[in-house]
């Protein structure tokens, strides 16, 4: 880790000023401190925003506004989240460990970086994300955890967050502040595919910071929702694939379907094609299979992750089948 200065943001304005002059935002530090220590990232100044007001507020329309500095643990334990957006609570609780969830913030979780082992090996491996143009050792190397959707020749890394998969499914909106004012971006559009510039991972501009996340008023498919994470260990491991699903039925047909996938792309993957294919169909296994196959039609497996296509399909079908059978 290079020598650095640490300052605690007095307020949002102070944080913004420091970020716009080059400081890195420090939330819980559960990813950034590790990246700095391993020299994957460098910073000359850290501005700690974890003690800025962190609240979860219910809005008049029934939605929630979650400050960026709210911890993963606090969000997962919140009664309204558990009742109205169970998929989010489940996704949070599937992530990391209790200790890390006590530290990690919502903002930091969104901005966490890939766990690709070549990305982490600063001395010994090539990585276009770390060093644009260097090459990618993962493409022909260990890529069991890597992307099957939306990857590029330059980068096949996945985004490791569980929370973001649920947020993408829930139509969450990320609130940003910068020198030129505030703006908001749907979470599903916040992360960008790698393309030719894998070092660019989100639409966050230099000098901008995440101030919070807004959840829309819960729909039926948000309330009847679940998150299933498939991994090598039964706990405390990153996802091979994960599925956030929500389903609402009317008169024996699907009225509303929500699906997002984790572990398959550089971003939480909202499966809109599959969702569209499900509207109006009878909630049965063959319809679920057909819908997710449509979503996976563009999947491009690598040498070590071809199993993910079938695994996503089966996990999605299992999640939707369970939701269809669940008593609302």
């Amino acid at each position: 880790m290079t020598p650095l200065r640490y300052v605690r943001a007095a307020d949002k304005v102070d944080a913004l000023a420091r970020v716009s002059s080059g400081a890195r935002c420090l939330g819980g530090g559960t990813n950034l401190v590790d990246l700095l220590r391993q020299n994957v990232e460098q910073a000359s100044e850290l501005v700690d925003i974890s003690r800025l007001h962190g609240a979860i507020q219910e809005r008049d329309d029934g939605g929630l506004f979650i400050d960026a500095s709210v911890t993963n643990a606090a969000l997962a334990a919140h009664p309204l989240v558990r009742r109205r957006y169970p998929v989010l609570a489940r996704a949070l609780l599937a992530g990391a460990s209790a200790q890390i969830r006590n530290m990690a913030t919502v903002g930091g979780n969104i901005l966490q970086r890939t766990r690709c082992t070549y990305f982490y090996d600063v001395d010994g491996a090539r990585c276009n994300k770390r060093q644009p143009g260097a090459g990618c050792d993962a493409r022909e190397g260990f890529n069991r955890y890597h992307a099957i959707l939306g990857a590029s020749d330059q980068c096949v890394a996945t985004h490791p967050s569980d929370m973001c998969v649920a947020l993408a499914m829930l139509d969450a909106v990320v609130h940003l502040s910068g020198a030129s004012g505030d703006r908001s971006v749907p979470l599903a559009d916040f992360h960008v595919p790698p393309g030719a510039t894998p070092q660019v991972e989100t639409v966050l501009l230099p000098g901008e910071l995440i101030t919070g996340v807004e959840l829309p008023p819960p729909t039926d498919a948000m309330v009847r929702s679940d998150y299933r994470k498939v991994r090598d260990r039964s706990s405390y491991a990153f996802a091979l694939v994960s599925v956030a699903g929500g389903l609402a039925l009317a008169e024996g047909r699907v009225r509303e379907a929500r699906i997002a996938l984790g572990g398959v792309a550089a971003k939480p993957w909202r499966a809109r094609r599959a969702e569209a294919a499900l509207i109006g169909v009878a909630p049965q296994s063959d319809a679920f299979v057909a819908a997710i196959r449509e979503e996976l039609a563009d999947a491009r497996p690598l040498s070590g992750n071809g199993f993910k296509i079938g695994l996503v399909e089966r996990t999605v079908v299992a999640v939707l089948t369970a939701l269809a059978g669940a008593r609302a």
Partner: peptide
């Protein structure tokens, strides 16, 4: 072990999976 380079790539306990309590 990446056989192209002879380099070990699973250099953390997040990559080398020993059993956790739930296992």
């Amino acid at each position: 072990l990446d056989e192209r380079t002879g380099r070990i790539m699973s250099t953390s306990l997040a990559d080398y999976h020993v059993p956790v309590h739930l296992d």
